[in-house]
Amino acid sequence: MKEELFVSGRHIPNIDPYLSIWHWEIPVYLFLGGLAAGIMFFAGLFLVLGREKEMETTVKRAPFLVPFALVLGLLALFLDLKHQLYFWRLYTTIRIESPMSWGAWTLMLITPLSIVWAAGYIKEAIPGWDWRFGILKQFEALVIKYRKHLAWAMMGLSLILGVYTGILLSAFNARPLWNTSILGPLFLVSGLSTGLALTMWMSKSHSERKLLSKIDIVLIGVELFLIIHLLMGFLAAGMVQVEAAQLFLGGEFTVSFWVFVIIMGLAFPVTLEILELFGYKIPIWIPSLLILFGGLMFRMIMVEAGQITRFLY
């Protein structure tokens, strides 16, 4: 039986014929959030493990980028808003049921924490740095004294942030491509991997890079596994989910997904990282850049494709 749908008299901008309310801003917001979570998690982890000497870039240098990433992420979120004058309304309520709400609050907590963390290392990064005011000096001493506690808080919050970047999408039952609980862990792992990629790129120590790259290989493996899982889950589910998966398996997004995300963003850089472990000389910026690019493309494609998927009636 053939079925056709006509909606007469409806050509609402950004809604018809396909929903396209979220453009580049939300994917960039999710990407930067995941990136920041990745850097912070490993900074906290290696401090708690007491290895800040060998893992200098991870613990002390890369975290300087985090406040910038988070502020840019919030800026992207702000640009997505269409009623911007009322932005402050986000911070006059906490609505537990709304991922958008608790995500905005998580960012509100984690951004100052990342600034405090970076401030604790600024003297080591910029020799001759002077805080000028006594109170700032006291504060710094406090930060250094309680660094381990901060590290734990940062690890916890960065995991929440990383998972949140996936849950923001997966909480929408109305969009079958997003409505899967794998998206939370998947975006977390992808965020951790992009964080590692940037840290590796900045690091000058061979042994540090080697360790980070080993972790990254495992993460990318997990990511590929989760993506296969995601597609299998869709294919085994109802009609709307099957159609969602088909966007990547022969449909509109097949080429962009497999070429940009799977091959260029995951398979190729992980191969380079493995070759490097076996002693081949590979400029680190190549896998790092590819992983970052793949992470961004993944979010762009998921956001755009998800909006096309819907219930049929």
Binding site: I12, N14, H83
Partner: peptide
């Protein structure tokens, strides 16, 4: 209207596409 920030989450969440973004932002 004057509590809405225009984030678009509700538009994404509606299985019936019953909402739209008004030109004034909300």
């Amino acid at each position: 209207h004057n509590e809405c920030i225009g984030c678009g989450a509700c538009i994404e969440s509606c299985p019936y596409d019953a909402r739209y973004s008004h030109p004034d932002g909300y």
